[in-house]
Structure formats: C-alpha cells, structure tokens
C-alpha cells in the first residue's frame, strides 16, 4: 500500500519540480496539469473519490484551460512563451528558502507524535457528503459561494477594465 503512495508521490513531485524549472511556459502549464492529476490520483488512493473527481474537473478541466488562455493572451509572438530566466542569485535564494521550509516541515512531520492510522478509510458516500455540506457546513458553503461570485465579478472587472487600446498600440 505504501509503495503505491511513494510511486504516486515521486511522480507528482517530479512533474511539479520539472514544471517549475522549464523555460517554456506552455510546457510548464501542461506538466502542472499532470501534477494536479497526480494529486487527484492520491485522493483516489486515499478513498476520497468525490474530491478526486472534483479536483480533476476543476484543475484539469477549468483552471489549466484558463491559465493556457492567459498564456496565449499575454504574449507577443509564438516564441514569447519561453520565459526568460531570472537572475541566478534569485534562483539560489529561492532554492535555499524552499529547502529550508522543506527541512523544517519534514523534521516536524518525522518527530511529531502522530496517532496511528485506522485500518479502513472512513466510509463517506456522496449523499452523506451532500447532507453534511447543506447541514453542518451550510454557512461555510454560503461563504464560499459568495467568495466565488465576488471573485468572478472582480476578475471580469479587472480583465475587462481600462481604457480602450489605441489602434497603433497592438504589437
């Protein structure tokens, strides 16, 4: 059981790391889609079927497409998708910060007295989940709905606002 998890985790982390270091922006986004699919596979492995499919639908089906669209909208020419590398020092500092955070978190995880695992996954059907969402968590559901609406309206205002472009301004 643990071998499956280790393989999944290594594949997911590998795609994420490569995606973050690639020059070509579109390749990065497509590889990150694989990362998100790997996380969905992890949810499936853990027995959270609904979350896995929701993750696939939202990340692979919607977020990745929106990001790809943004990549295509914000470039001058076809070769513009190759993001220029940042300064070397910046990369070194970033790697140091990432390594430090990973070290602290890993040390905490391995030293913490964590409770042992139950043998079986807590059985939760979709119907039960729906009841929980509309019952005990109804207020948070409402808050998330308001947040999504506000975010959507805000995004439209941000992206569509601004003065009309001058004809000669387009690249």
């Amino acid at each position: 059981m643990n071998t499956v998890l280790v393989i999944l985790a290594l594949a997911t982390l590998g795609t994420a790391a490569v995606a973050m270091s690639l020059r070509n922006l579109l390749h990065s986004v497509l590889l990150l889609t694989a990362t998100w699919a790997g996380v969905a596979a992890f949810y499936l492995w853990a027995g959270a079927e609904f979350v896995a499919f929701a993750q696939l639908l939202v990340y692979v089906g919607a977020i990745s497409m929106a990001v790809l669209f943004a990549v295509l909208l914000t470039r001058h020419s076809r070769d513009d998708v190759a993001a220029p590398p940042a300064a070397r020092s910046r990369g070194v500092y970033a790697a140091a910060a990432g390594a430090a955070v990973a070290g602290v978190l890993l040390a905490a995880v391995s030293l913490a007295p964590l409770a042992t695992a139950p043998a079986r996954a807590p059985a939760v059907s979709v119907r039960q989940l729906g009841g929980e969402l509309m019952g005990a968590h109804a207020a948070s559901l409402l808050a998330v709905a308001v947040l999504l609406t506000v975010a959507l309206v805000g995004a439209v205002v941000l992206a569509a606002g601004g003065p009309p472009e001058k004809p000669g301004d387009t690249p």
């Binding site: 643990n2 982390l13 990369g91 790697a95 910060a97 990432g98 390594a99 990973a102 978190l105 995880v109």
Partner: peptide, 22 residues
C-alpha cells in the same frame, strides 16, 4: 502512511514555494 502523506505534501509545498520565489 500518515507521515508519508505529510512528507509528500510538505515537499509539494516546498516545490511550489521555490517556484513562486524563483
């Protein structure tokens, strides 16, 4: 398994952080 999962998520977080900073 719990520690493995947590290690996985910590590393994922670190990769994301490194990418966002670099």
């Amino acid at each position: 398994p719990l520690q493995l999962c947590l290690a996985f998520s910590s590393l994922l977080f670190a990769v994301g952080l490194t990418g966002a900073l670099a």
